[in-house]
Every structure is written in C-alpha cells, then in structure tokens.
C-alpha cells in the first residue's frame, strides 16, 4: 500500500523486548525499507536471540543480505495460494500480481497453485486474537506508574474513575474498539466460542501452511486485496478496513516469515505482492531451521518486478502531486 519493501520476520526472530506490545503472539518487528537489500541488512542487524524475550529464537542469524542479492530462482517452486486471489481483489492488483508471476516464470521459477482452505477463517480468527491480546497488553496504561493521568471532570476522585478517565482520554477510537472487542472475546461464557475457536483456526492455518510448503518452496500472494484507501475513508466502517488485512494475516497467525515487495501501480496507487516462506525447514517437525528465513529473500531479487523503483527521484509518492510512477526496469544490484 505504501510502495515500500516490508518485512515480517519469522515469529521470534527479532526480540520484542522494548517494543510496545499490541498482540504478543502476533507481534513481530521487521524493517520497512526502500529496497530489499536495505531491508535485509537492517533485518540482520536487529535479528538474533534475546534472553529477555522468552519467545526469542536461538538460531543463528542467516546472511539475509546475501540472500537478497541472489538472483537465481531457477527451479524454485512458487506456490500461488488459491484462497488469496479472485473475488474481492481489485482488478489492477490482480493484474500486477500476474505480472509478478510472469516475471518469476520467465526467470526460471515454476509456478504451482496451492490450496489453503482454512485461510477463509484467518481474518475472523485474527480479529479475535489480536483485540483480545491487545485489550490485555494495553491494560497497563492506567496513569498509576507512568504516563498521562487524567482526572474525571466531576464526581468522586477514586482510582477506578481516574483510570477510566485516563484511558478514555489516552486511547483513540480504534484502540478503544479493539480493547472492548477483546474484552468481550475473553469474557466469561464467550471464551471458548471466540478466543478458543480462533486458536483452533490457528492450528488449521498452520496445517495449511505445512501442506502448502510440501508442494512449494515459497508461497506468493498479493499483499492486500486493494490499494490504499484514502485518509479517513473507512473510519466509519472498521470491518471494511479490517478486510484489507486478509492476505497477510494467515502468515501472521502461523508465525511464518514474509516480505512484501512493491509491484507497480493499480489505479495510481502502489500495489504489492507478498512472498511467504516456511518458518520451519521441515514441516511438520516445526523446528525453526536456521536457513529458513532466507527463502523469502531469495525471490525478492531482480527477476521479480520492483517497479516502484527506489531510485525514482520523487520518492515517496505523495498526493496530490503524485507522479505517475514509471514502469522501470530498475533493479537493485
């Protein structure tokens, strides 16, 4: 949506210590950069084991930059996820995606289709798990130990009411919505149906990924079904806003690494495609292998279209004088 290279490392690859938590089992820090190589270099710097984060992987950090520079995709099996295309996807987004596939095929990759039926429920599962964990993680912002403290305008000055006023003033609408939704999903009587079921969907999605990685070395999908919507456009329709996360969420739930790479314009706005790699070298054993995060990097290199070239003089594009970004043959090496 932003025309940048965005990286989502394997869950646990970058320490979360120091990052303000939204959803602990989903949060993962990754670089956003102009080029895949920049992103890879940055990723290598921030990755690695941290004893202060219990969910931090102990694997050695692979040479991401080397992988990002690799150009040869000959014989690489690239799996297109059946569920992450078609209905609901903007025409232009799909066209740019096809171009990306063509480019990969031309460079020697083999394109196969994989089936991930549980992805259908990923968005629902995500919008239960994420708000649930966020409602809990954000509970600490109560004006007792640090941060803003707001006193209620009237009525007795009790800690309960001060916390209520503080949190009312400090959180924005979307945050409040997520906190209330998460509080609901975790409350007595609803836990099993909502949070519990969502965690089961998570298992199914992991199984889908494992099966898909039996058939393909990497998976590919558009990053989002549409290009960016206008500022403020969907404020009144949170669900429509959430729907834009549909393609990236399955990997988020499964902890699978991925990278989103700009792939030209659709309706004058940047479109992108995402590549996902298995977080385990050998599913279904699921021991995170040290070489695995390298995979998504290797297919982000030149053969794939990176048409929102980072060397574009007027980068980043900004409305209203958004330039018509040229379809350049620019590559990074």
């Amino acid at each position: 949506m932003t025309g940048t290279v965005g990286t989502k490392p394997t869950y646990g690859s970058v320490s979360r210590y120091g990052a303000i938590a939204m959803a602990s089992s989903l949060d993962q820090i990754g670089p956003v950069a102009r080029t895949t190589e920049d992103a890879a270099l940055l990723h290598a710097l921030i990755a690695g084991h941290d004893p202060k984060d219990s969910t931090s992987l102990t694997d050695e950090v692979p040479d991401f930059a080397q992988a990002a520079r690799r150009v040869d995709v000959t014989g690489l099996k690239v799996g297109v996820i059946r569920q992450l295309q078609g209905e609901g996807y903007q025409q232009g987004v799909l066209a740019r995606f096809q171009e990306a596939l063509d480019a990969l095929r031309e460079a020697g990759a083999e394109i196969v289709e994989v089936d991930c039926p549980s992805f259908e429920h990923a968005l629902s599962a995500y919008y239960l798990i994420m708000p649930s964990e966020a409602s809990s993680n954000l509970a600490r912002y109560d004006g007792v130990r640090y941060g803003h403290r707001v006193l209620p305008e009237d009525g007795p000055l009790t800690i309960e009411r001060v916390m209520g006023a503080t949190r009312a003033a400090g959180f924005g609408d979307e945050v409040k919505r997520r906190i209330v939704l998460g509080t609901y999903a975790l409350s007595a009587g609803y836990y099993d149906a909502y949070y519990g079921s969502a965690q089961k969907v998570r298992t199914l999605i992991q199984q889908d990924f494992e099966a898909a990685f039996e058939q393909a070395d990497v998976l590919i999908s558009p990053t989002s079904p549409t290009v960016a919507f206008r500022l403020g456009e969907k404020l009144d329709d949170p669900l429509a806003m959430y729907l834009n996360d549909v393609a990236t969420i399955p990997a988020n739930l499964a902890g699978v690494p991925g990278i989103s790479v700009p792939g030209g314009l659709a309706d004058d706005a940047p479109a992108a495609s995402c590549r996902w790699a298995s977080s385990s070298s050998r599913p279904p054993v699921r021991t995170p292998g040290s070489t695995t995060p390298v995979r998504p990097w290797s297919v982000c290199s030149p053969p794939t279209p990176n048409r929102c070239g980072p060397r574009s003089p007027s980068w980043p594009p900004s409305p209203p004088s958004r330039p018509r970004l040229q379809e350049s043959e620019d590559t990074y090496d």
Binding site: R16, Y17, G18, I20, D53, S54, R145, Y146
Partner: peptide
Amino acid sequence: CLGLPGTLPVV
C-alpha cells in the same frame, strides 16, 4: 516489575 511498556517476562 513496574510493568513498563515493552517489558517481557522470563520464568
């Protein structure tokens, strides 16, 4: 112990 933002527990 103070629950500062960004902190994490280890058993």
